[in-house]
Design a binder for these strands. Sequence first.
DNA 1: CTTACTGCAAATGTTTTGCAATCGG
DNA 2: CCGATTGCAAAACATTTGCAGTAAG
Lengths: 155, 155
Amino acid sequence: MATLSQRAQKLFIQYLRENNLKVTQERLALLDEIFSTNEHLDADDLLARMKAKKKKVSRATIYRTLDLLVQCGLVRKSRLGQEHYFYEKVQPGRRHDHMVCTHCGKVIEFWDPALDERQRQICQEHNFRPSFYSLQIQGLCEACQALERESRFLD
Amino acid sequence: MATLSQRAQKLFIQYLRENNLKVTQERLALLDEIFSTNEHLDADDLLARMKAKKKKVSRATIYRTLDLLVQCGLVRKSRLGQEHYFYEKVQPGRRHDHMVCTHCGKVIEFWDPALDERQRQICQEHNFRPSFYSLQIQGLCEACQALERESRFLD
DNA sequence: CTTACTGCAAATGTTTTGCAATCGG
DNA sequence: CCGATTGCAAAACATTTGCAGTAAG
């Protein structure tokens, strides 16, 4: 049985062919890197990871490739915290939202069917046809709440 | 009875005094401008509006003042669409989320108690202490769906 | 061989910052 | 008067783009 990463590569290549785009080493290497981790990566992370693996890919190519990956639905682009964009692999059947700890930056993924259903209903009530939902909750994770209680936020 | 705008000004001045900050014309004028509209404004909008009223405020001051207003809770900062930041006045008891039309940019505000309650529960289940929620739904508004049906998306 | 892709460096657009002049308390 | 604030222009950032050389098909 094919791994998620293998399936993603197949889909990506198919997408490229269908659009008269070329299957290049850089594009495959980036896809591979994204699918080899569960982390939420930004452009810089990817640049560093590629460099660490001796695969040289320029920043421009990273942005251009991420764009393609988002367009073909293999990668999700979102803002965590309030800064720049983060990217993560899309795992079919694993839709989720994010809680972001404002102290340590930890990201907790969650998904709730009731929430999902209610959002859909609200759209209907407004005659709005949704294409993309983004729910983000900022706050303090369990560990950082404990730290706070010990007044150790002074680091 | 005091208007929302008047109440806001009072709170802002109080906040400034408490923090040894000065009550300047620029700060009051910006607060006033934000509270005189229901729109979601960005820094540029504010710059243009101030210029239109012959009140000259620099871009730097706008950003610095918006920061203060967000800090004291009178203004809400958010990303609509995917571009830069938008700011809107905070109206007590008027919490809401946003639907953004990806075609015309229209912003629909909505709020739903069931959604709210469920979000709170989910945080509890994860021992997460929320401080800020942001739900944004992108899609097509009613008018743009109609346009699409008439295949007039080609403008 | 043809067309798309890459890396580079320069450009972009938004937001931030250093600094000297200015204003509020 | 003193310290905070302002405007300006320069800096900082993340992201995008033009272009000449390079690689895919």
